[in-house]
């Protein structure tokens, strides 16, 4: 995005994020991952983690710490979100079955896409988030086709059809965005009130 005037530039760089605390949060996430990985490498460590619900407890702690660092200590939101998402994926899936790892990764991508679809104000970014969600569903289908039905791969067939429909959806959605932009000269989602009852 080009900066049109120095005033805009000032506005953006008005409150720079606290980078030291951001790195601190990344370090905490990394330490948590190392800790739970160290437990899981011991004999019977996976069972200890599962019986004590340690993965879910770590997930809660990482989330609360992330929200604290984001809002109380003014960290960079994207770094906090990325570190928290990646750390919670590692913490939740260390020592689990392969199928759970794949499905959890798909669920994480789906959740990120859902959040982005609701929060984004640029219509094209909303379409990108929808593509992300469709891809997460594809990962789910192919995981099931490998682990549950490896002989005749029905999940992959469904994934092919989803790919087709996603291509059509992207083309039509972007055409709609283009014609909206031509009529209203904005792609801000909050200004599209044409179809609002």
């Amino acid at each position: 995005m080009e900066h049109n005037s120095p005033a805009e530039l000032e506005k953006e760089t008005g409150t720079p994020p606290n980078m030291i605390m951001t790195y601190a949060y990344c370090g905490i996430v990394f330490l948590a991952c190392c800790f739970i990985f160290g437990i899981s490498t011991n004999a019977g460590g996976e069972k200890i983690i599962q019986d004590n619900n340690m993965d879910v407890i770590f997930f809660f702690i990482l989330t609360i710490l992330g929200i604290t660092f984001r809002y109380m200590l003014n960290c960079s939101p994207s770094c906090c979100f990325a570190a928290g998402a990646l750390g919670s994926f590692v913490v939740l899936t260390v020592g689990q079955d392969p199928i759970i790892k794949y499905l959890t990764l798909a669920a994480l991508l789906f959740a990120i896409g859902m959040y982005g679809m609701v929060v984004s104000r640029n219509a094209v970014r909303v379409l990108m988030s929808i593509e992300l969600m469709l891809n997460a569903v594809n990962i789910n289908l192919i995981t099931f086709s490998r682990f549950v039905d490896p002989a005749d791969v029905k999940g992959q067939l469904f994934a092919i059809f989803i790919l087709t429909v996603a291509a059509a959806e992207a083309a039509v959605g972007l055409a709609i965005v283009l014609s909206l932009y031509r009529n209203m000269s904005t792609v801000d989602m909050q200004r599209f009130n044409l179809l609002k009852w």
């Binding site: 990325a82 991508l109 959040y115 982005g116 970014r125 990108m128």
Partner: peptide, 13 residues
Amino acid sequence: VPFAVGVIFDKNV
């Protein structure tokens, strides 16, 4: 995963 987060959060579309 960080790329997916970047798709959502990056100021530059």
